[in-house]
Deep mutational scan, measured.
Amino acid sequence: MQRVNMIMAESPGLITICLLGYLLSAECTVFLDHENANKILNRPKRYNSGKLEEFVQGNLERECMEEKCSFEEAREVFENTERTTEFWKQYVDGDQCESNPCLNGGSCKDDINSYECWCPFGFEGKNCELDVTCNIKNGRCEQFCKNSADNKVVCSCTEGYRLAENQKSCEPAVPFPCGRVSVSQTSKLTRAETVFPDVDYVNSTEAETILDNITQSTQSFNDFTRVVGGEDAKPGQFPWQVVLNGKVDAFCGGSIVNEKWIVTAAHCVETGVKITVVAGEHNIEETEHTEQKRNVIRIIPHHNYNAAINKYNHDIALLELDEPLVLNSYVTPICIADKEYTNIFLKFGSGYVSGWGRVFHKGRSALVLQYLRVPLVDRATCLRSTKFTIYNNMFCAGFHEGGRDSCQGDSGGPHVTEVEGTSFLTGIISWGEECAMKGKYGIYTKVSRYVNWIKEKTKLT
Protein backbone atom coordinates (compact mmCIF):
# COMPACT_ATOMS: atom_id res chain seq x y z
CA MET A 1 0.00 0.00 0.00
CA GLN A 2 2.91 2.29 0.80
CA ARG A 3 4.31 1.55 -2.65
CA VAL A 4 1.05 2.46 -4.39
CA ASN A 5 0.85 5.71 -2.55
CA MET A 6 4.36 6.56 -3.61
CA ILE A 7 3.52 5.85 -7.28
CA MET A 8 0.38 8.09 -7.17
CA ALA A 9 2.32 10.85 -5.56
CA GLU A 10 5.13 10.63 -8.04
CA SER A 11 2.97 10.08 -11.23
CA PRO A 12 -0.30 12.12 -11.10
CA GLY A 13 -0.50 12.26 -14.90
CA LEU A 14 -0.66 8.53 -15.06
CA ILE A 15 -3.66 8.48 -12.78
CA THR A 16 -5.51 11.04 -14.94
CA ILE A 17 -4.95 9.01 -18.10
CA CYS A 18 -6.28 5.89 -16.44
CA LEU A 19 -9.45 7.58 -15.24
CA LEU A 20 -10.14 9.11 -18.67
CA GLY A 21 -9.78 5.74 -20.34
CA TYR A 22 -12.25 4.24 -17.92
CA LEU A 23 -14.87 6.92 -18.61
CA LEU A 24 -14.57 6.66 -22.39
CA SER A 25 -15.04 2.92 -22.22
CA ALA A 26 -18.15 3.21 -20.07
CA GLU A 27 -21.72 3.27 -21.73
CA CYS A 28 -23.42 6.70 -21.61
CA THR A 29 -26.95 6.55 -20.17
CA VAL A 30 -27.53 10.31 -19.44
CA PHE A 31 -27.91 11.70 -23.03
CA LEU A 32 -30.30 10.49 -25.76
CA ASP A 33 -29.08 9.73 -29.18
CA HIS A 34 -29.59 12.25 -32.04
CA GLU A 35 -32.73 10.61 -33.50
CA ASN A 36 -34.62 10.35 -30.19
CA ALA A 37 -33.63 13.83 -29.14
CA ASN A 38 -35.29 15.28 -32.27
CA LYS A 39 -38.56 13.50 -31.43
CA ILE A 40 -38.78 15.40 -28.15
CA LEU A 41 -37.78 18.80 -29.58
CA ASN A 42 -39.90 18.55 -32.71
CA ARG A 43 -39.88 22.30 -33.69
CA PRO A 44 -40.19 23.51 -37.31
CA LYS A 45 -37.15 25.10 -38.75
CA ARG A 46 -37.35 28.89 -39.01
CA TYR A 47 -37.00 30.73 -42.31
CA ASN A 48 -33.34 31.55 -41.85
CA SER A 49 -32.43 28.72 -39.55
CA GLY A 50 -28.72 28.25 -39.33
CA LYS A 51 -27.96 31.78 -40.52
CA LEU A 52 -27.26 35.00 -38.70
CA GLU A 53 -30.46 37.16 -38.68
CA GLU A 54 -28.46 40.35 -39.10
CA PHE A 55 -27.54 39.26 -42.63
CA VAL A 56 -31.01 38.25 -43.99
CA GLN A 57 -34.16 40.15 -44.95
CA GLY A 58 -36.69 40.55 -42.12
CA ASN A 59 -39.79 38.36 -41.89
CA LEU A 60 -43.09 39.93 -40.69
CA GLU A 61 -44.25 36.81 -38.86
CA ARG A 62 -40.94 36.31 -37.09
CA GLU A 63 -40.32 39.95 -36.30
CA CYS A 64 -43.78 41.21 -35.26
CA MET A 65 -46.29 38.36 -34.94
CA GLU A 66 -44.43 35.79 -32.82
CA GLU A 67 -43.43 38.58 -30.48
CA LYS A 68 -43.90 42.34 -30.24
CA CYS A 69 -41.53 44.22 -32.47
CA SER A 70 -40.16 47.73 -32.59
CA PHE A 71 -40.54 50.20 -35.43
CA GLU A 72 -36.94 49.48 -36.47
CA GLU A 73 -37.62 45.75 -36.65
CA ALA A 74 -40.71 46.36 -38.77
CA ARG A 75 -38.61 48.65 -40.97
CA GLU A 76 -36.29 45.71 -41.66
CA VAL A 77 -39.26 43.80 -43.13
CA PHE A 78 -40.63 46.53 -45.42
CA GLU A 79 -37.32 48.25 -46.18
CA ASN A 80 -39.41 51.38 -46.82
CA THR A 81 -40.30 54.05 -44.27
CA GLU A 82 -43.66 54.98 -45.83
CA ARG A 83 -44.92 51.37 -45.96
CA THR A 84 -43.61 50.75 -42.47
CA THR A 85 -45.50 53.77 -41.16
CA GLU A 86 -48.77 52.56 -42.70
CA PHE A 87 -48.28 49.13 -41.09
CA TRP A 88 -47.26 50.65 -37.76
CA LYS A 89 -50.46 52.75 -37.46
CA GLN A 90 -52.63 49.63 -37.48
CA TYR A 91 -50.13 47.43 -35.59
CA VAL A 92 -49.97 49.71 -32.56
CA ASP A 93 -53.70 50.35 -31.88
CA GLY A 94 -55.81 48.66 -34.57
CA ASP A 95 -57.53 50.09 -37.65
CA GLN A 96 -59.32 53.36 -36.77
CA CYS A 97 -60.99 53.31 -40.22
CA GLU A 98 -62.77 50.01 -39.60
CA SER A 99 -66.02 51.82 -38.66
CA ASN A 100 -65.99 53.86 -41.91
CA PRO A 101 -66.18 57.26 -40.17
CA CYS A 102 -65.77 59.37 -43.33
CA LEU A 103 -69.03 60.64 -44.84
CA ASN A 104 -70.06 61.74 -48.34
CA GLY A 105 -67.64 59.44 -50.13
CA GLY A 106 -64.58 60.46 -48.10
CA SER A 107 -61.53 58.15 -47.99
CA CYS A 108 -60.22 57.14 -44.56
CA LYS A 109 -56.51 56.95 -43.68
CA ASP A 110 -55.61 55.24 -40.40
CA ASP A 111 -53.33 56.91 -37.85
CA ILE A 112 -52.14 56.15 -34.33
CA ASN A 113 -55.12 56.66 -31.98
CA SER A 114 -56.75 58.67 -34.76
CA TYR A 115 -57.67 58.78 -38.45
CA GLU A 116 -57.77 61.28 -41.29
CA CYS A 117 -60.57 61.71 -43.85
CA TRP A 118 -59.64 62.72 -47.38
CA CYS A 119 -62.78 64.53 -48.52
CA PRO A 120 -64.11 64.77 -52.09
CA PHE A 121 -64.62 68.16 -53.68
CA GLY A 122 -67.36 70.10 -51.95
CA PHE A 123 -66.93 68.67 -48.45
CA GLU A 124 -64.67 69.24 -45.48
CA GLY A 125 -64.55 68.68 -41.72
CA LYS A 126 -63.25 65.86 -39.51
CA ASN A 127 -65.61 63.37 -41.19
CA CYS A 128 -66.30 65.28 -44.46
CA GLU A 129 -69.64 66.29 -42.96
CA LEU A 130 -69.49 69.97 -43.96
CA ASP A 131 -70.71 71.13 -47.37
CA VAL A 132 -68.51 73.83 -48.86
CA THR A 133 -70.17 74.25 -52.24
CA CYS A 134 -73.70 75.06 -53.34
CA ASN A 135 -73.41 72.58 -56.21
CA ILE A 136 -74.07 69.61 -53.92
CA LYS A 137 -77.53 69.41 -52.35
CA ASN A 138 -77.75 73.20 -52.34
CA GLY A 139 -75.01 73.26 -49.69
CA ARG A 140 -77.59 71.74 -47.30
CA CYS A 141 -79.27 75.15 -47.25
CA GLU A 142 -83.04 75.00 -46.86
CA GLN A 143 -83.70 77.83 -49.30
CA PHE A 144 -80.88 79.80 -50.93
CA CYS A 145 -77.16 79.10 -51.14
CA LYS A 146 -74.22 81.26 -52.16
CA ASN A 147 -70.51 80.50 -52.28
CA SER A 148 -68.41 83.10 -50.48
CA ALA A 149 -65.10 84.47 -51.74
CA ASP A 150 -63.23 81.64 -49.97
CA ASN A 151 -65.62 79.08 -51.51
CA LYS A 152 -67.59 78.49 -48.32
CA VAL A 153 -71.35 77.90 -48.26
CA VAL A 154 -73.44 80.85 -47.09
CA CYS A 155 -77.15 80.11 -46.65
CA SER A 156 -79.91 82.71 -46.78
CA CYS A 157 -83.69 82.90 -46.71
CA THR A 158 -86.44 84.68 -48.58
CA GLU A 159 -88.12 87.77 -47.15
CA GLY A 160 -90.03 87.05 -43.95
CA TYR A 161 -87.63 84.33 -42.83
CA ARG A 162 -84.32 84.25 -40.96
CA LEU A 163 -81.58 81.66 -40.62
CA ALA A 164 -81.98 79.26 -37.73
CA GLU A 165 -79.20 78.57 -35.25
CA ASN A 166 -77.74 75.85 -37.47
CA GLN A 167 -77.21 78.46 -40.23
CA LYS A 168 -78.90 76.10 -42.72
CA SER A 169 -82.62 76.08 -41.96
CA CYS A 170 -85.02 78.99 -42.32
CA GLU A 171 -87.53 79.96 -39.65
CA PRO A 172 -90.36 82.51 -39.79
CA ALA A 173 -89.42 86.04 -38.79
CA VAL A 174 -92.97 87.44 -39.17
CA PRO A 175 -96.37 86.12 -38.04
CA PHE A 176 -97.49 85.05 -41.53
CA PRO A 177 -94.47 84.46 -43.76
CA CYS A 178 -94.89 83.82 -47.46
CA GLY A 179 -95.54 80.37 -48.83
CA ARG A 180 -96.45 78.75 -45.51
CA VAL A 181 -99.67 76.93 -44.67
CA SER A 182 -100.52 77.82 -41.07
CA VAL A 183 -104.10 76.58 -40.61
CA SER A 184 -103.76 73.69 -38.18
CA GLN A 185 -106.23 71.29 -39.80
CA THR A 186 -104.59 71.70 -43.21
CA SER A 187 -100.98 71.48 -42.11
CA LYS A 188 -101.27 67.68 -42.25
CA LEU A 189 -102.21 67.99 -45.91
CA THR A 190 -99.05 69.84 -46.85
CA ARG A 191 -97.73 68.38 -50.06
CA ALA A 192 -94.63 66.23 -50.18
CA GLU A 193 -91.51 68.27 -49.52
CA THR A 194 -89.05 68.71 -52.33
CA VAL A 195 -85.42 67.99 -51.50
CA PHE A 196 -82.59 69.64 -53.42
CA PRO A 197 -80.79 67.37 -55.87
CA ASP A 198 -77.19 67.85 -56.94
CA VAL A 199 -77.35 70.86 -59.26
CA ASP A 200 -74.90 72.50 -61.62
CA TYR A 201 -75.51 76.05 -60.41
CA VAL A 202 -73.15 77.55 -62.92
CA ASN A 203 -75.38 76.45 -65.79
CA SER A 204 -78.71 76.44 -63.97
CA THR A 205 -80.19 79.40 -65.80
CA GLU A 206 -81.12 78.27 -69.26
CA ALA A 207 -79.49 80.06 -72.15
CA GLU A 208 -82.77 81.08 -73.69
CA THR A 209 -83.53 84.05 -75.88
CA ILE A 210 -86.82 85.78 -75.25
CA LEU A 211 -88.43 86.35 -78.60
CA ASP A 212 -89.38 89.95 -77.89
CA ASN A 213 -89.16 91.20 -81.45
CA ILE A 214 -91.18 88.50 -83.19
CA THR A 215 -94.23 89.84 -84.95
CA GLN A 216 -96.99 87.37 -85.48
CA SER A 217 -100.61 87.57 -86.50
CA THR A 218 -103.15 86.94 -83.80
CA GLN A 219 -103.79 83.22 -83.46
CA SER A 220 -107.25 81.82 -82.89
CA PHE A 221 -107.11 79.66 -79.77
CA ASN A 222 -109.95 77.52 -78.49
CA ASP A 223 -110.74 77.91 -74.80
CA PHE A 224 -107.32 79.29 -74.04
CA THR A 225 -108.35 81.10 -70.87
CA ARG A 226 -107.59 77.91 -69.09
CA VAL A 227 -108.68 72.31 -62.46
CA VAL A 228 -109.84 69.19 -64.22
CA GLY A 229 -109.33 65.98 -62.26
CA GLY A 230 -108.20 67.87 -59.16
CA GLU A 231 -109.17 67.64 -55.51
CA ASP A 232 -111.07 69.94 -53.18
CA ALA A 233 -108.67 72.11 -51.24
CA LYS A 234 -109.15 72.61 -47.51
CA PRO A 235 -109.73 76.14 -46.18
CA GLY A 236 -106.35 77.86 -45.89
CA GLN A 237 -104.47 75.20 -47.85
CA PHE A 238 -103.55 77.71 -50.60
CA PRO A 239 -103.75 81.03 -48.74
CA TRP A 240 -102.00 82.96 -51.55
CA GLN A 241 -104.78 82.15 -54.04
CA VAL A 242 -107.25 84.91 -54.95
CA VAL A 243 -110.26 85.00 -57.26
CA LEU A 244 -110.99 87.84 -59.70
CA ASN A 245 -114.57 89.04 -60.19
CA GLY A 246 -115.53 91.40 -63.01
CA LYS A 247 -118.23 91.19 -65.64
CA VAL A 248 -118.63 87.64 -64.36
CA ASP A 249 -117.54 86.13 -61.08
CA ALA A 250 -114.47 83.90 -60.84
CA PHE A 251 -113.37 84.68 -64.39
CA CYS A 252 -109.68 84.34 -63.45
CA GLY A 253 -107.37 83.69 -60.54
CA GLY A 254 -104.28 85.33 -59.13
CA SER A 255 -101.65 85.19 -56.37
CA ILE A 256 -100.86 87.52 -53.48
CA VAL A 257 -97.42 89.14 -53.85
CA ASN A 258 -97.83 91.28 -50.73
CA GLU A 259 -100.56 93.22 -48.93
CA LYS A 260 -101.05 95.63 -51.84
CA TRP A 261 -100.28 93.63 -54.98
CA ILE A 262 -101.63 90.66 -56.94
CA VAL A 263 -99.96 88.88 -59.87
CA THR A 264 -102.13 87.34 -62.59
CA ALA A 265 -102.22 86.68 -66.35
CA ALA A 266 -102.27 89.74 -68.61
CA HIS A 267 -104.95 88.25 -70.86
CA CYS A 268 -107.33 88.19 -67.87
CA VAL A 269 -107.59 91.96 -67.51
CA GLU A 270 -109.12 94.62 -69.73
CA THR A 271 -108.64 98.34 -69.49
CA GLY A 272 -111.75 100.05 -68.15
CA VAL A 273 -113.31 96.92 -66.65
CA LYS A 274 -113.79 97.06 -62.89
CA ILE A 275 -112.14 94.15 -61.10
CA THR A 276 -112.68 93.01 -57.53
CA VAL A 277 -110.15 90.75 -55.83
CA VAL A 278 -111.33 88.30 -53.17
CA ALA A 279 -108.64 86.80 -50.91
CA GLY A 280 -109.26 84.10 -48.32
CA GLU A 281 -111.92 82.53 -50.55
CA HIS A 282 -112.73 78.82 -50.43
CA ASN A 283 -116.33 78.17 -51.52
CA ILE A 284 -117.43 80.92 -53.89
CA GLU A 285 -121.10 80.36 -53.09
CA GLU A 286 -120.76 80.56 -49.32
CA THR A 287 -119.69 83.25 -46.89
CA GLU A 288 -117.08 81.68 -44.63
CA HIS A 289 -115.93 84.90 -42.89
CA THR A 290 -112.37 84.42 -44.09
CA GLU A 291 -112.86 86.47 -47.27
CA GLN A 292 -111.35 89.91 -47.87
CA LYS A 293 -112.55 91.95 -50.86
CA ARG A 294 -110.51 94.72 -52.46
CA ASN A 295 -110.93 96.86 -55.55
CA VAL A 296 -108.21 97.08 -58.20
CA ILE A 297 -107.03 100.66 -58.68
CA ARG A 298 -104.19 100.03 -61.14
CA ILE A 299 -103.34 97.39 -63.72
CA ILE A 300 -99.74 96.97 -64.93
CA PRO A 301 -99.33 94.47 -67.78
CA HIS A 302 -95.75 93.55 -68.61
CA HIS A 303 -94.24 96.17 -70.91
CA ASN A 304 -93.65 93.54 -73.64
CA TYR A 305 -97.23 92.29 -73.59
CA ASN A 306 -99.21 93.11 -76.73
CA ALA A 307 -102.53 91.30 -77.11
CA ALA A 308 -102.87 92.56 -80.70
CA ILE A 309 -99.79 90.55 -81.67
CA ASN A 310 -100.11 87.56 -79.35
CA LYS A 311 -102.55 87.24 -76.48
CA TYR A 312 -100.37 84.85 -74.49
CA ASN A 313 -96.79 86.03 -75.00
CA HIS A 314 -95.49 87.74 -71.83
CA ASP A 315 -98.80 86.82 -70.24
CA ILE A 316 -98.33 88.44 -66.85
CA ALA A 317 -99.80 91.51 -65.11
CA LEU A 318 -99.82 93.15 -61.69
CA LEU A 319 -102.90 94.49 -59.89
CA GLU A 320 -102.65 97.20 -57.24
CA LEU A 321 -105.31 97.10 -54.51
CA ASP A 322 -107.11 100.08 -53.01
CA GLU A 323 -106.50 98.90 -49.43
CA PRO A 324 -103.86 96.55 -48.03
CA LEU A 325 -104.90 93.01 -47.25
CA VAL A 326 -104.75 91.90 -43.62
CA LEU A 327 -102.47 88.89 -43.53
CA ASN A 328 -103.60 85.84 -41.59
CA SER A 329 -103.76 82.05 -41.94
CA TYR A 330 -106.20 82.36 -44.86
CA VAL A 331 -104.55 85.33 -46.58
CA THR A 332 -100.80 84.84 -47.04
CA PRO A 333 -98.41 85.92 -49.85
CA ILE A 334 -96.67 83.44 -52.12
CA CYS A 335 -92.87 83.46 -52.00
CA ILE A 336 -90.98 84.77 -55.03
CA ALA A 337 -87.31 83.84 -55.30
CA ASP A 338 -84.71 85.43 -57.57
CA LYS A 339 -84.42 84.46 -61.23
CA GLU A 340 -81.85 81.72 -60.69
CA TYR A 341 -83.66 79.94 -57.89
CA THR A 342 -87.11 80.29 -59.47
CA ASN A 343 -85.70 78.47 -62.48
CA ILE A 344 -84.07 75.83 -60.26
CA PHE A 345 -87.30 75.26 -58.35
CA LEU A 346 -89.22 74.81 -61.61
CA LYS A 347 -86.75 72.10 -62.64
CA PHE A 348 -87.59 70.10 -59.54
CA GLY A 349 -90.14 68.54 -61.86
CA SER A 350 -93.61 69.06 -60.43
CA GLY A 351 -95.74 71.86 -59.09
CA TYR A 352 -99.23 72.58 -57.82
CA VAL A 353 -101.92 74.50 -59.67
CA SER A 354 -105.15 75.72 -58.11
CA GLY A 355 -108.30 77.57 -59.08
CA TRP A 356 -112.08 77.65 -59.43
CA GLY A 357 -112.06 76.91 -63.16
CA ARG A 358 -114.19 74.41 -65.00
CA VAL A 359 -114.02 70.88 -63.64
CA PHE A 360 -114.22 69.47 -67.19
CA HIS A 361 -114.00 70.89 -70.72
CA LYS A 362 -116.95 73.23 -71.36
CA GLY A 363 -118.41 72.06 -68.06
CA ARG A 364 -119.46 73.88 -64.91
CA SER A 365 -117.06 75.90 -62.79
CA ALA A 366 -115.95 74.58 -59.42
CA LEU A 367 -117.55 75.98 -56.29
CA VAL A 368 -114.75 74.86 -53.97
CA LEU A 369 -111.12 75.68 -54.72
CA GLN A 370 -109.50 72.83 -56.65
CA TYR A 371 -105.84 71.84 -56.72
CA LEU A 372 -103.74 69.43 -58.74
CA ARG A 373 -100.13 68.33 -58.84
CA VAL A 374 -98.77 68.49 -62.38
CA PRO A 375 -95.41 67.25 -63.71
CA LEU A 376 -93.13 69.47 -65.77
CA VAL A 377 -92.98 68.44 -69.44
CA ASP A 378 -89.67 68.61 -71.29
CA ARG A 379 -89.49 71.29 -73.94
CA ALA A 380 -89.10 68.94 -76.90
CA THR A 381 -92.27 67.05 -75.97
CA CYS A 382 -94.04 70.33 -75.35
CA LEU A 383 -93.17 71.68 -78.81
CA ARG A 384 -94.30 68.47 -80.53
CA SER A 385 -97.66 68.54 -78.77
CA THR A 386 -99.02 71.66 -80.49
CA LYS A 387 -98.97 73.58 -83.75
CA PHE A 388 -98.91 76.86 -81.84
CA THR A 389 -95.77 78.75 -80.82
CA ILE A 390 -94.30 77.94 -77.42
CA TYR A 391 -92.03 80.85 -76.53
CA ASN A 392 -89.04 80.54 -74.22
CA ASN A 393 -90.95 82.44 -71.55
CA MET A 394 -93.51 79.61 -71.41
CA PHE A 395 -93.39 76.02 -70.17
CA CYS A 396 -95.64 72.96 -70.37
CA ALA A 397 -96.96 70.89 -67.49
CA GLY A 398 -99.53 68.13 -67.27
CA PHE A 399 -100.24 64.51 -68.17
CA HIS A 400 -99.89 62.95 -71.60
CA GLU A 401 -102.84 60.62 -70.97
CA GLY A 402 -105.10 63.59 -70.27
CA GLY A 403 -107.86 63.65 -67.68
CA ARG A 404 -106.17 66.17 -65.39
CA ASP A 405 -105.35 69.77 -66.20
CA SER A 406 -106.04 73.42 -65.49
CA CYS A 407 -109.05 74.77 -67.40
CA GLN A 408 -111.18 77.82 -68.16
CA GLY A 409 -111.41 80.13 -65.18
CA ASP A 410 -108.06 79.01 -63.74
CA SER A 411 -106.06 81.49 -65.85
CA GLY A 412 -103.88 83.84 -63.86
CA GLY A 413 -103.71 81.41 -60.97
CA PRO A 414 -100.48 80.08 -59.49
CA HIS A 415 -98.17 77.25 -60.41
CA VAL A 416 -96.14 76.77 -57.23
CA THR A 417 -93.25 74.54 -56.21
CA GLU A 418 -92.94 73.50 -52.60
CA VAL A 419 -89.39 73.66 -51.24
CA GLU A 420 -88.86 72.12 -47.81
CA GLY A 421 -92.35 73.14 -46.71
CA THR A 422 -92.34 76.63 -48.26
CA SER A 423 -94.08 77.31 -51.60
CA PHE A 424 -92.56 79.51 -54.31
CA LEU A 425 -94.27 80.91 -57.40
CA THR A 426 -92.83 79.24 -60.51
CA GLY A 427 -95.55 79.77 -63.11
CA ILE A 428 -98.85 81.44 -64.00
CA ILE A 429 -101.68 79.48 -65.62
CA SER A 430 -101.95 80.88 -69.15
CA TRP A 431 -103.48 78.75 -71.91
CA GLY A 432 -103.97 75.33 -73.49
CA GLU A 433 -105.88 73.44 -76.16
CA GLU A 434 -109.19 72.38 -74.64
CA CYS A 435 -108.76 70.94 -71.13
CA ALA A 436 -107.25 67.65 -70.01
CA MET A 437 -107.08 66.45 -73.61
CA LYS A 438 -104.84 63.44 -74.32
CA GLY A 439 -101.48 64.48 -75.75
CA LYS A 440 -102.04 68.14 -74.83
CA TYR A 441 -100.60 70.08 -71.93
CA GLY A 442 -101.28 73.21 -69.94
CA ILE A 443 -99.09 76.16 -70.93
CA TYR A 444 -97.73 78.44 -68.20
CA THR A 445 -95.91 81.75 -68.05
CA LYS A 446 -92.38 81.14 -66.77
CA VAL A 447 -92.10 83.38 -63.71
CA SER A 448 -88.29 83.19 -63.58
CA ARG A 449 -88.25 85.58 -66.57
CA TYR A 450 -90.18 88.24 -64.68
CA VAL A 451 -89.14 88.14 -61.02
CA ASN A 452 -87.03 91.30 -61.22
CA TRP A 453 -89.91 93.16 -62.85
CA ILE A 454 -92.37 91.88 -60.23
CA LYS A 455 -90.18 92.91 -57.31
CA GLU A 456 -89.42 96.32 -58.79
CA LYS A 457 -93.09 97.17 -59.38
CA THR A 458 -94.51 95.80 -56.13
CA LYS A 459 -92.22 97.44 -53.59
CA LEU A 460 -94.13 98.60 -50.53
CA THR A 461 -93.47 102.28 -49.74
Results as ranks from 00 to 15, higher is better:
244 L>Q: 01
89 K>H: 12
157 C>E: 01
380 A>K: 11
318 L>H: 01
164 A>M: 13
342 T>D: 04
34 H>R: 13
6 M>G: 13
38 N>M: 09
262 I>V: 14
196 F>Q: 12
265 A>P: 04
339 K>F: 07
433 E>Q: 15
26 A>D: 03
47 Y>K: 04
420 E>K: 06
93 D>L: 09
414 P>E: 04
43 R>G: 01
25 S>G: 12
78 F>M: 08
355 G>R: 15
333 P>K: 04
185 Q>Y: 12
31 F>E: 09
417 T>K: 01
108 C>I: 03
311 K>W: 04
438 K>V: 08
5 N>S: 14
277 V>W: 01
172 P>T: 06
397 A>P: 00
81 T>D: 13
415 H>M: 04
248 V>A: 08
242 V>I: 05
330 Y>G: 04
364 R>K: 15
300 I>G: 01
66 E>A: 05
380 A>W: 07
50 G>N: 10
148 S>F: 07
355 G>Y: 15
96 Q>G: 13
175 P>Q: 06
189 L>E: 15
77 V>P: 02
22 Y>L: 07
198 D>L: 07
222 N>K: 11
417 T>S: 08
188 K>Q: 12
105 G>V: 03
127 N>S: 11
214 I>N: 09
9 A>I: 10
27 E>T: 12
340 E>S: 07
107 S>P: 04
90 Q>A: 12
449 R>D: 15
350 S>R: 13
117 C>K: 02
446 K>G: 09
144 F>L: 05
408 Q>L: 12
182 S>C: 04
252 C>N: 01
115 Y>P: 04
173 A>H: 09
256 I>D: 00
237 Q>V: 07
245 N>Y: 12
331 V>R: 02
68 K>V: 07
133 T>N: 13
359 V>Q: 15
369 L>E: 06
272 G>F: 07
283 N>H: 10
57 Q>R: 00
13 G>C: 14
349 G>F: 07
295 N>W: 05
143 Q>G: 01
225 T>I: 13
224 F>V: 14
19 L>R: 03
160 G>Q: 04
149 A>V: 13
7 I>F: 09
373 R>H: 12
176 F>C: 04
168 K>R: 09
461 T>D: 15
237 Q>N: 08
218 T>W: 11
111 D>E: 06
27 E>Y: 11
257 V>I: 05
88 W>P: 02
243 V>C: 05
20 L>W: 13
6 M>C: 15
303 H>Y: 12
174 V>N: 06
336 I>S: 01
161 Y>E: 00
16 T>H: 14
182 S>Y: 10
419 V>M: 08
208 E>W: 08
195 V>A: 14
254 G>Y: 01
283 N>I: 09
435 C>R: 04
381 T>G: 04
202 V>F: 11
7 I>G: 14
56 V>Y: 01
34 H>M: 13
325 L>W: 04
113 N>R: 12
